[in-house]
Design a binder for these strands. Structure first.
Length: 376
RNA sequence: GGAUGAGUUCCCGAGUGGUUAAAGGGGGCAGACUGUAAAUCUGCUGCGCGAGCUACGGUGGUUCGAAUCCACCCUCAUCCA
């Protein structure tokens, strides 16, 4: 259930309710692919850094420990001790990221496991069954995330197939939700728009999937090779074709600037591995721009990562200490860095929402969209 | 006092006459990362803008040419008195 509270231009302030709580949007979902945030964060940590929605992955959890195991353990919420809203990605991104290890047919995708090479077949029905076993609040449709740029000749039949897959996802999802022993009977389904960098394919595909009764719609297949401006242009093209009364999710995006620009274009949900991965690699976010904490200039810097940041890391530790932890390869360094960056992203969304509430998002965008990308 | 072995660029370490500013590590410095096959990957790492200069313990020598060969010296390690 999505409630649109306020708009400013195309930007939307909303409230999304699912089985595990209410989500204030725009929201950034914190990525825990394998049921854990890389860098050593627990669900308890996620609460402390104001995470609203946790995101995990169908393909990875199917491989290990197995969605049957997760189901037996009471579902992913219980398994990882996260009682808040949760979204599971369908495995569609792995069609892109593991492109050397899979084969696509009308029926679905055969992967060679990146762990041991064994064959795994995943089609729309399999993805839905796995996500049903995981018991997430939002299941994503199984799609093909197509690399950019790909030819129109490739993208057109691909997004037509992704449409057929969505129909199959919807049918299977509805069936699974009514089973007496389903893990999360309130699980919702989001459809995914594809169409590469071709506006007419994108809008055609969006019009088609919008006719299927999904709980929300995502724009997928962006930030996978194209220029940033091309991504924005595609969002601008697709947005008018998206239902106003349902949440929109821009998958896998992005930088703080991408998120601000996405909100400005009418997006409600985001997720990205970037803040966590960058954190593990020493790139940290501040309200003045980014910091590479490994740099020599922070060797004796007594200040926190960001003086204005209220996160548990900035309340306690100096840049010099963080730098030392990275230089020494101490895992605490990564853990603290990830905590900070995810807190920053969650705080970014909170400020975006506050600006929307106050009707000052335009000013916020002007002030921060570029700044947050730059080295400070 | 004697016998062996060893001293290479920030460190370890390869290199036994020219293609060697010197393999490979480490360390250091910097960069990349967008629904996570990533605690990963990529550069740079003697000085100088440059012609070039300075470098393989030291000094001298052999040679067209030496980190590599010779002599002596210094230092270190191990063993014997």
């Amino acid at each position: 259930m999505f409630k649109l509270l306020k708009t400013e231009g195309n930007a939307r302030r909303g409230e999304f309710t699912c089985g595990h709580g209410v989500v204030q949007t725009p929201v950034f979902m914190n990525v825990g692919t394998q049921g854990a945030i890389k860098g050593g964060l627990s669900a308890h940590d996620l609460r402390n850094i104001h995470c609203q929605v946790e995101l995990s992955n169908t393909y990875h959890l199917h491989l290990r420990p197995g969605d049957d195991v997760v189901r037996q353990m009471g579902g992913l919420h219980k398994f990882m001790d996260w009682d808040g809203p949760m979204l599971t990605d369908s495995g569609g991104f792995q069609v892109f990221s593991l492109s050397g290890l899979r084969k696509i047919t009308e029926e679905g995708v055969t992967f060679s496991s990146h762990l041991d090479g064994h064959r795994i077949f995943m089609g729309p029905e399999e993805s839905m069954r796995i996500q049903s076993n995981l018991g997430s609040d939002i299941a994503m449709a199984f799609d093909e995330c197509v690399e950019n740029p790909s030819t129109r000749e490739y993208v057109k039949p691909s997004c037509e197939r992704t449409l057929r897959w969505l129909e199959r996802c919807k049918a299977e999802h509805d069936k699974l939700n009514t089973l007496p022993d389903t893990v999360n009977p309130q699980q919702m389904l989001f459809g995914i728009n594809q169409g590469g960098i071709y506006p007419e394919l994108r809008t055609w595909h969006m019009d088609q999937i919008a006719q299927i009764d999904c709980d929300g719609f995502a724009i997928g297949g962006l930030a996978v090779g194209e220029e940033t401006q091309v991504m924005y242009d595609i969002i601008d093209a697709v947005e008018p074709h998206m239902p106003k009364d349902k949440p929109r999710y821009l998958m896998g995006v992005g930088t703080p600037s991408n998120i601000i620009e996405g909100v400005a274009r009418g997006v409600d949900f985001f997720d990205c591995v970037m803040p966590a991965r960058n954190a593990r690699h020493g790139k940290l976010y501040t309200w003045d721009g980014t910091v590479n904490i490994k740099n020599e200039k922070y060797k004796t810097d007594p200040l926190p990562i960001d003086e204005t940041c209220q996160c548990p890391v900035c309340q306690t530790y100096s840049r010099a200490y963080l730098r030392h932890l990275f230089a020494s390869g101490e895992m605490l360094g990564m853990r603290l860095a990830v905590m900070h960056n995810l807190y920053f992203y969650n705080e970014l969304m909170a400020r975006i929402r506050a600006a929307l509430d106050a009707g000052t998002f335009g000013e916020f965008r002007a002030k921060y969209s570029q700044k947050l990308e730059e080295r400070c």
